[in-house]
Design a protein around this nucleic acid. Structure first.
Ligand SMILES: Nc1ncnc2c1ncn2[C@@H]1O[C@H](COP(=O)(O)OP(=O)(O)OP(=O)(O)O)[C@@H](O)[C@H]1O
Length: 728
DNA sequence: CCAGAGAGGATTTTT
DNA sequence: TCCTCTCTGG
């Protein structure tokens, strides 16, 4: 067997890599080589078991992880990179591939669109309008997260309906139903549908499931602790024949439960595959002993602490440096200067350093100071490139060249740039489309027809009709050209014909920057590598929806990384600055009144600490600006759990009482405010019975609760202290 | 129909 | 603070 493959593995890792057939569960702490094991195992299967790479499905959490895995495998095998390898990727991209391959069976056109959260919100808003529901009561964000929750538990509208009782939930069901109809009408899928459709297809179509069960002889899943029920169910279906399912995860690094990731998948795995081999890896190769000691001190405080002790193979190393600054500006200033110091005194480069934080908004101060000190950085996350207004506009035009039923894209640009099609015209078109169950484009075509003379033809008057017709001609023209043009030519044509530049310059802020963004869009399409051919736009648009910001992190350029703790999962840096370690920032305020969420915040801190190889900085401020006002902050409760002897600098007072006071203060604040009620809670009213809180508003010395009651008792408002409401 | 002003509401993490 | 929605006057 090939040395290079095995020489860098310890005994347990080897055991996992060379595991024979059958299920295996690898539970392992941070930096213990989980990713290395998965990668080596794939190479081992290919080299020793002679399994073709196309017959191994390896699913990761991010595209970046998948790409790194692929590159390392190509390197290990010493073969040139294979460009199209959809069987190694994220769950979502893998599912998108399976769906594309079988679009006929699913009654989808092959050029289906994938809707991102903006598109989803637009569909929900239209749905609410159609159902005449108030979007203050049914907030699109909330509705979408309920729908997404249902989908990740494999509930379609009908199965969702079976488990509900409140009037509020019944309306959610109505919304869910219409929302799905609109997606179908638009030949579009949302993120969760990629999983739903794949599950349905594998679950109900024997022929298809046989096909893939035979094709994918080995299935490997990374970051298993952050998979949800539907993902695990898809995995079980694929591995149904061979039982060759190999999952790797760390329950203590589970940080996506708010996105329905479900740690019980790990427990269920043990019972679903009771013959499963279980391997624990407990040596940390990444970090210094001090860093690991601090991480263990943090995580061991969790009541549901899954971890086995991990031990660092590295030396004690540097002490952890603790910094308290006055406010976020000083924090950014001190850290920026410190970064300048360490890159000039130490041998490390900017790309070995990361600044991490809980919320994207915290990056602002850093960006400001880093620019002023001319320290190059790459910001991960935030407003993503493909979500910018001008980019979404162009993408909407592009999507229409593939899919004229894409109502959301059509409505997005029907009056962009403004072309005399105003709200009332659009409303009439939408109404007619809804009534007749046809696409917006078809409705617009019918309503703008001049030759007819009947009721329908009177819906729009002549002025608007003319504008709509010229818009439709524009779309037809672009689509005709798209048959023969290259992608770059199509975009140029769109910009040209719509006078988009003019619109940017006259109507939007920062037109120069936006023009540059469009240039960048064109060049990223040109660089886009795929099987090529006619599929190019299609695959490009798919990647636009599925590819994330971290995926573009590159370490070829020597730049500092600014990143959220969530996105840092799986990465490693020589030096890490964990910032904003205040109670209210990390742990975030919104997790104060939930034990589970508080534990997840702690895991987030744990993930952050364990990203660092040699240097770790823990930074907090005394005062942090929120929106408009600024607040005094106390050190994060987590800081008190790290032994003093591991730390130099501005230490927190280690006395447990201080920590307890901080926690108590927060708790009593919540109590004075409200009995930890939030929207979505189930409550009981002495007179009206059970219901769900849909809104809480401040009201002098009291709180006004808006509650939706079961059955047909409707929606009512109460003052909290007068209502006799109790939480269920 | 359109643009711009002003009010008001909401603020975590993202495939 | 920033984004979204609504209103107003042209
Ligand atoms: N047997 C080994 N010998 C030397 N170095 C190793 C060994 N195993 C792993 N490493 C190194 O340890 C570091 C962490 O490995 P890897 O990223 O695979 O861990 P992980 O378990 O996936 O971590 P995490 O869960 O924290 O993302 C990497 O730099 C890797 O190269």
């Amino acid at each position: 067997m090939d040395n290079t493959l095995t020489q860098n593995l310890n005994v347990n890792q080897l055991d996992a890599v060379m595991h024979k057939d059958g299920p295996a569960l690898i539970i392992a702490g941070p930096g213990s080589g989980k990713t290395r094991v998965i990668t080596s195992r794939i190479a081992w299967l290919i080299i020793n078991e002679k399994i073709p790479i196309q017959e191994i499905a390896a699913l990761t959490f991010t595209n970046k992880a998948a790409n790194e895995m692929k590159n390392r495998i190509f390197h290990m095998l010493d073969i040139p990179p294979i460009k199209f390898l959809p069987n190694i990727g994220t769950f979502h991209s893998f599912c998108a591939y399976l769906i594309r391959e079988n679009h006929n069976i699913l009654n989808l056109d092959k050029n289906f669109a994938i809707y991102d959260s903006y598109d989803q919100t637009a569909v929900i808003k239209r749905t609410l309008d159609e159902l005449n529901l108030d979007n203050k009561l049914y907030k699109p964000r909330v509705v979408l997260s309920i729908i997404s929750g249902a989908k990740s538990k494999i509930q379609n509208p009908e199965t969702y309906q079976k488990n509900i009782s409140t009037a509020y939930a019944k309306n959610i069901y109505e919304i869910y139903k219409i929302y799905q109809q609109k997606l179908i009408q638009s030949n579009a899928l949302d993120f969760d549908d990629l999983l739903m459709k794949t599950f349905e297809m594998l679950n109900s179509n024997q022929e298809i499931s046989n096909l893939y069960q035979e094709k994918y002889k080995y299935l490997l899943i990374d970051e298993f602790q952050d998979t949800n029920l539907i993902q695990y169910s898809i995995a079980k279906l694929i591995a149904n024949k061979t039982n060759n399912i190999f999952v790797v995860g760390d329950p203590d690094q589970s940080i996506y439960s708010w996105r329905n990731a479900d740690i019980t998948n790990i427990l269920n795995f043990k019972s679903d595959y009771n013959k499963s081999k279980i391997i624990y890896l407990n040596k940390n190769y990444r970090s210094s002993q001090n860093i690991i000691d601090a991480s263990q001190a943090i995580i061991s405080e969790n009541a549901t602490n899954y971890s086995r002790q991990i031990t660092a193979i590295n030396e004690k190393g540097n002490l952890i440096i603790s910094i308290e600054s006055y406010d976020e500006n000083e924090e950014a200033e001190i850290i920026s200067k410190e970064i300048n110091n360490i890159i000039s005194s130490d041998k490390i480069q900017l790309k070995d350093i990361a600044i991490m934080y809980r919320t994207n908004a915290q990056s602002r101060a850093f960006e400001h100071y880093l620019s002023s000190l001319q320290i190059p950085y790459q910001l991960v996350g935030g407003t993503r490139f493909y979500q910018r207004q001008e980019i979404k506009d162009i993408i909407a035009y592009l999507r229409l060249t593939l899919n004229l039923n894409d109502d959301t894209s059509l409505l997005r640009i029907i009056n962009i740039p403004t072309r005399g099609i105003g709200k009332s015209t659009i409303d009439k078109i939408i109404l007619y489309a809804n009534k007749s169950n046809i696409s917006i484009l078809d409705a617009a075509t019918i309503l703008s027809d001049v030759d007819e003379d009947n009721e329908i033809s009177k819906i729009l008057s002549n002025g608007p009709k003319k504008h709509v017709r010229s818009f439709l001609n524009l779309i037809t023209d672009i689509n005709n050209k798209s048959q023969t043009f290259s992608v770059e030519e199509i975009i140029t044509y769109i910009i040209d014909k719509t006078n988009y530049k003019n619109y940017l310059l006259s109507s939007l802020t920062n037109p120069e920057e936006r023009l540059e963004n469009i240039e960048e869009l064109i060049s990223s399409i040109n660089n886009f590598e795929s099987e090529g051919g006619e599929n190019k736009i299609n695959l490009f648009l798919e990647s636009v929806s599925l590819i994330n910001d971290v995926d573009n992190l590159n370490d070829e350029q020597d730049k500092l990384t600014l990143i959220t703790l969530h996105q840092s999962k799986g990465l490693e840096f020589d030096s890490v600055f964990l910032t904003g370690l205040e109670d209210g920032t990390l742990p975030h305020v919104l997790s104060f009144d939930s034990e589970n969420e508080m534990e997840e915040e702690r895991r987030l801190m744990y993930v952050g600490i364990t990203r660092a190889k040699r240097r770790l900085y823990l930074s907090r401020v005394f005062k942090r600006g929120g929106w408009g006002k600024s607040e005094l902050k106390e050190p994060s409760r987590f800081l008190f759990d790290i032994p003093n002897e591991l730390i130099v600098g501005h230490q927190v007072n280690i006395h447990k009482e201080v920590k307890n006071n901080i926690i108590k203060k927060k708790e009593s604040k919540i109590e004075n405010n409200l009995p930890s009620l939030t929207a979505g809670n189930k409550v009981k009213h002495p007179h009206f019975g059970k219901g769900i809180i849909i809104q809480i508003e401040d009201s002098k010395d009291d709180f006004e609760l808006t509650i939706a009651f079961d059955e047909n008792k409707g929606i009512k408002k109460f003052l909290y202290t007068m209502s006799g409401i109790v939480k269920l």
